[in-house]
Simulated scan of single mutants.
Amino acid sequence: MWGSRRNREKKSVICIACGDAVRRSAAREYDKEGNRWERNGKTFEHLCKACHRELCHQPRDELEALLVDIDAGRVDQIEFLTRYERAVQDRYGPLEEREG
C-alpha cells in the first residue's frame, strides 16, 4: 500500500523555495492545490522547515486557477503583474469597492 516510513525518512528532497537538499523528515509537503490530505494521484513538492515558516498560511482559494489562466511563469514580470491586476479586478472588482 504505502511505502515504509523508515525508508521515507532517509530520502533526500529538494526545497522548491531555496533549492537546498534536506532529509524528507526535515521537510514539509507542499501541495499546490492546497489540500495535502487528498493524496490520490498526486505527487508532492517539498519545502525545508525554514522556507515553510516563511510562507503565508492564509487560504488561497482560486489562486492556482487564476495563475494558470494568466500564464504565470511564462511571461515577464511586468506582463505578469499587468495580467494579475486585471484578472483580480475582473473577478473581484476594484480594491476601492471592497474597502470599508
Rank of each mutant, 00 (worst) to 15 (best):
I70C: 00
I78E: 15
K10L: 00
K32I: 09
T43L: 11
G19S: 07
A65N: 08
G73E: 06
K10N: 00
A50L: 11
L66M: 09
R98C: 15
E33K: 10
E79R: 06
E96H: 13
D31L: 05
R28S: 04
Q58T: 15
T43R: 15
H57Y: 07
A50F: 08
E62R: 06
K10M: 01
Y84P: 00
D90F: 07
V68N: 13
N7F: 06
H57R: 05
D69L: 04
R60W: 04
C18Q: 07
K42W: 03
W2N: 08
K42D: 03
E85M: 10
Y30Q: 08
G19L: 04
I16D: 01
N40G: 14
K11T: 02
E79I: 13
D69F: 03
G3T: 04
Q58C: 14
Y92G: 03
N7D: 06
C56L: 12
S25N: 09
R74N: 10
E79V: 13
Y84M: 13
L63C: 14
R6G: 06
D69A: 12
W37C: 12
N40L: 13
K10C: 01
Q58A: 11
V75H: 05
P94W: 11
C56D: 12
R86K: 13
M1R: 06
N40M: 15
G19K: 04
C56E: 13
K32Q: 09
P59Y: 10
R8K: 14
W37F: 15
T82I: 09
G100H: 01
C15Q: 01
Y30T: 05
D71I: 03
E45C: 09
D71K: 14
R8E: 02
R91I: 02
R91L: 02
W2K: 06
D69Y: 04
C48P: 01
E54I: 01
A21S: 15
E54K: 11
L81F: 15
V13Q: 01
S25F: 03
V22W: 00
A72V: 01
E96W: 09
T43E: 12
C15P: 01
D76T: 02
R5W: 08
V75L: 04
G93T: 11
K11L: 02
V75G: 09
P59D: 13
G100I: 02
K32T: 13
E85Q: 10
L63A: 14
D61S: 10
I78Y: 11
R60A: 12
K42F: 05
I16E: 06
L67M: 08
K11C: 02
N40R: 15
G93E: 07
Y84R: 09
L63G: 03
L81K: 15
D76C: 04
R39G: 06
P94D: 05
E45M: 08
